[in-house]
Design a binder for these strands. Sequence first.
DNA 1: ACACCATATATTCTCAAAAATTTCATATAA
DNA 2: TTATATGAAATTTTTGAGAATATATGGTGT
Lengths: 228, 228
Amino acid sequence: MRNTHGKLNFLGSAPHNTVANATYERLRHDIIFGKLKPGAKLKLETLKDEYAASVSTLRETLNRLTSEGFVSAAEQRGFFVSPVSAADLNEIANLRILLECYALEESLQNGDDDWEADVAGAYHKLSSTEAVIKNGNDADIETWKEYDWQFHLSLIRACNSTNLLGLHATLFGKYLRYQILVLTYRGEVARQEHKALFEAAIARDANAATKLLTQHIMNGLTHTLEYM
Amino acid sequence: MRNTHGKLNFLGSAPHNTVANATYERLRHDIIFGKLKPGAKLKLETLKDEYAASVSTLRETLNRLTSEGFVSAAEQRGFFVSPVSAADLNEIANLRILLECYALEESLQNGDDDWEADVAGAYHKLSSTEAVIKNGNDADIETWKEYDWQFHLSLIRACNSTNLLGLHATLFGKYLRYQILVLTYRGEVARQEHKALFEAAIARDANAATKLLTQHIMNGLTHTLEYM
DNA sequence: ACACCATATATTCTCAAAAATTTCATATAA
DNA sequence: TTATATGAAATTTTTGAGAATATATGGTGT
């Protein structure tokens, strides 16, 4: 095992053994889903009540989140939710394209039958959900985004690079925060993009797949920028 | 300011205000430079004596290092220095090529006169040091690696992406750990590679520069793998 | 010898309070 | 008024100790 910090499921509730891990998951979720607003001060005393954890435990998780970029820290002045900006979103989208396309190429080369089955399964879950949610409520959107994540992850999982998958997971989370921030519906377009991407991947057409993926991310970027 | 975790200098001793930051820098340094061996258990009680910090403070820094990948953690079983492997080194080298070449291209497009002067200064420091160190002792190697880092950083600094620079810095540190691990001399070859890279960068020849950078990293990779 | 269980030791995880630092409000002087 | 100094309150940082968990030890039965 590489470390305890790697999350098996992206948004959901893993078997939280330690208080620190549970707090980490909750804080991360609350930042991504906007319950903790960008730029908001994260006072330890307040967090203590809200998350039922001691100062030390909270500082552990805040340090983790700072390393990942969800939280910012100022020496002797505590922690605050990392701010958002169009420039930051641009950086993240471009990095996601760079890493995810590279991972996708590798994955298309290496993926075996198990991988293909995994992709098909993830796509099935995603597309069924997308078919149902036409103008979703918040609860639906969360499961939709979970399946969206699992689909994208399944595509690149065979890239044979733990380091790459780790970096990508963090990046995906940051990108997701911006999507949730504007929270306007792009479901029908995204649905078609996912379909095309899925088909190109199964056909092992790396060229088409990376182009579709780039478009998929770029479309999301411009859409999000529009509503920011 | 983005956060307190971003390091101004890579290996050196920044103005350490807090105990946590000082401990973080020292631990990171000791892992990269092999004082803490790959796979070694990081017992809190032992670290407490060695680094003169309390358990909670240590756990903060260990969590940071875990997020960055220098330390691994197992639930309820504590922390240990992340192991090394040929596969891991391969991943890191390839990711470094991917990110650093992309950053270099952006930087060559955006870099202004100040950037050029910065690159020239960093190259000057590096090449003077390389000229002196023929078969260096450990102290020399550390400054050499510091200047090596500053040169590579200067090249990509104008890439206009804080996120990219952050990811690259972590990756560079991991790559460096492997170089220190084998610690055999590749100075003369590296010296020529740096020279060619510098000249291509100043000439704004993105194509040549990225090729040279890729070769530079790949050569380091094969050299390191050979002695592992 | 080997597996299994109880007990003791070692280690991690969590907490609450003390120490250090910043922030805020008020007063004083230029 | 503006700036600077002073003291109180709020906040962060750091510590050491207790609770929870894992590991090692030794005994018992087969």
